[in-house]
Design a protein around this nucleic acid. Structure first.
Lengths: 232, 232, 232, 232
DNA sequence: CATGAATGAGGGTTCATTCAT
DNA sequence: TATGAATGAACCCTCATTCAT
């Protein structure tokens, strides 16, 4: 028995797909279950998606696109004010990061699915591709920082970008597995401090150290960890 | 064409299962492939294993059992010498850890499969259960350390155990994804230093600081990372 | 978005159905494609046809009805002039046949579909039924010819009718597969000559042989046949 | 419940596939039905065939391969005796043809399926390919005949080959639709006579005309059957 | 013990048909 | 009338598991 046309069918299917994929992974997710959770029939699923794989891609790419959008906004911010004061620079950066990780936290099931490649064999490349994307963004950010005189010009951009993006990646991977919400602003501030102390000029570090004062001596300490990070 | 009885059939099947599961995850692994890689038939597989799931459990529990065994050996060590000198204590601990992480490195495909729950939906509990096991071990270790006067009695055992076991867990998860072997001894020493400085008495820290001298300033530096760990 | 009522919807759907059925056969034709080619929706299709099968029957029976109509006209012609001169008789016959095979040629995709039973399993009976119809018509024609003294009274009507109708059937089956239009009048004249020589009285054969004189030798020559073959 | 190993399973499946495909065409044939008719399960079908399509190809190519084999034998015959007497030449040819069309008759359901492209859209090319094969064979045969002085050297080989192979094709298409067995030897003799009279030198025609003498008068008599049959 | 053909439940996908709008 | 989203039966194919040999 057919049902009335439903303008939200696609959304409902997508939401159901998110839930089912997040819970069971690509392979164990059944189209039947997705459809049923959306209150529709299996056939209806195929009105809205080419295939189970395509729905999966849509779900995962939705996540990646949202994350990429945050990066774009960040880049736009940086470009809009080419010589920001260090304080402004850090504040904006912090805002973006908090928003990103709030999104990650709110959608942790889905982001976790994404970061784990759908718990299947075929989609790791999506994650890898996004990781590259992040690394390029970080490199760009570093270039801007150097150009603005905030970062040391001796910084090896590619190496530092790998390190920094790897650090954020790992933070995200951990976050999606948490069951209680960490203090994101503080965590992100820590990450930021790490980066700033790692690549900032002494002047800038002096200028901004009050923003994260108790971390003053920590930065260099991290290098042993850092090796592993970079290795990743 | 039956083969001659093969006393190693079980082992060969298990090794093949490890490879296939590690490569494809539980769901995408085919019994056929496992049997073939073992040079046996599907039928033979079922002579040695109840089911694919059971083989998977055996593989994963083999890993977990091996890891647990390291912990048991560690515990036995600690109990054998209830009041070791701090140096001995640290040395033994280091040895155990190096052996553990060497095992993890050597079997990283398999350990990774395990830590990722078989890339399937149904076996996360095994990993969670093992994590509890580790945490209890760490707690026990802390108790011993406090009792021996090496750790501050003000340490909140459960909290610190969560932090420490989480730290090791994360280190392992990262290690299994590396493609070049990190300097395990150094990494483990870092972790140890972190723990000792975190929970040790000032006396002990003074006594042992020469064992990881260049880390002298690092300890506090790690806390930002640490916080995240605890959040886990 | 309903469209304005379309008085030609049925026709458009039928034409689309002809195209789609002719191209893909009954089984592989999709109602969706038919509707789309008609510029209508699937729903509209079901306003005009009970089912896909029914549309198929309508298409095929349209062809068969058209062909039957030719036969009826022929019969009417024959009855209108019960004692025609042999020349008139042959001329009218030829005209009918040319019209028939021109129709067959013009609609060869459709006629081919029909003769091939829709490239499906369930509609051979339609074709068989029509073949019977043709055979009866030929028998009737033979009876008239015999009654008019043009055909030998010794002709075994049923046998000859089977033969003749079979011959035309086969000619049609070949024609619908040609890609260049053969000289239909000539082909049909050949068929006619064949029949006339087969069943005609010596007198009539003498009388009309000038209507297809060159066939006398050509039959053996193979050229008339040849054209069709070569066309293939 | 599994059954005992059956060494004839493949054959039984293939025979069942022949029956089911012949009866219902590729599209309407169900793997389930094939398996059931072979007394096996659906799964067993896939132990022996990649897919339904592949089984269909095997069936059809079996037919085409058998037919091609007849042609090869014929060619071998011709090559073995490069200057046969016309009588021998015709006799051998006749023998081959009779065997071919006996095969066609015995397997008419299957051959019909084949000639009709599986009553599906995708396999016409197989038939077309085989038709080319036949035409080349005929051309080769003509070359030998001309070389042996039996056929007029003015014969346009390609054109005649098209004609002759088309004639045989049409005869086959008709044969597979008959319900009572025609006198194959006679039919084939008719075809042969047609060809010989079409392309033979006057000498040869004189020499061999006694091999099919009664055709001389039959043409006009009831030859219409014959001619059409042959022509087809 | 070992084999591997056989089984059959399971799930992805298609598409004729329905019906609320 | 017209629409097209929705339905659900069908059917292809996979693969874990069984069992006669």
């Amino acid at each position: 028995m057919p049902r009335a046309s439903d303008p939200f069918a696609h959304d409902r299917l997508l939401e159901a797909a998110k839930r089912v994929f997040a819970e069971r992974g690509l392979d164990r997710a059944k189209v039947e279950d997705i459809a049923q959770q959306a209150g529709l029939s299996k056939g209806a699923f195929y009105l809205h998606f080419e295939s189970k794989d395509e729905a999966f891609r849509e779900v995962v790419q939705g996540v990646l696109a949202r994350l990429a959008q945050f990066l774009d906004e960040d880049a736009a911010n940086l470009r809009a004010d080419v010589t920001p004061s260090p304080e402004d620079f850090l504040r904006k950066w912090l805002e973006v990061d908090v928003r990103i990780f709030e999104y990650v936290w709110e959608n942790r099931q889905l982001v976790r699915l994404t970061l784990e490649g759908g718990r299947s064999a075929d989609y790791q490349h999506m994650v890898d591709h996004f990781a590259e994307r992040v690394q390029k963004h970080v490199a760009e950010m570093l270039r801007i920082g150097i150009h603005a005189g905030m970062y040391r010009s001796s910084v090896h951009i590619d190496c530092a970008a790998a390190f920094i993006s790897g650090g954020y990646d790992r933070f995200a991977r951990q976050l999606v597995r948490e069951s209680v919400r960490p203090d994101l602003e503080r965590c992100v501030t820590d990450l930021q401090a790490l980066v700033v102390r790692g690549v900032g000029t002494p002047d800038v570090i002096d200028t901004v150290s009050e923003l994260f004062p108790e971390r003053a001596v920590e930065v260099r300490a991290h290098s042993p960890q850092g090796e592993l990070v970079v290795g990743k």
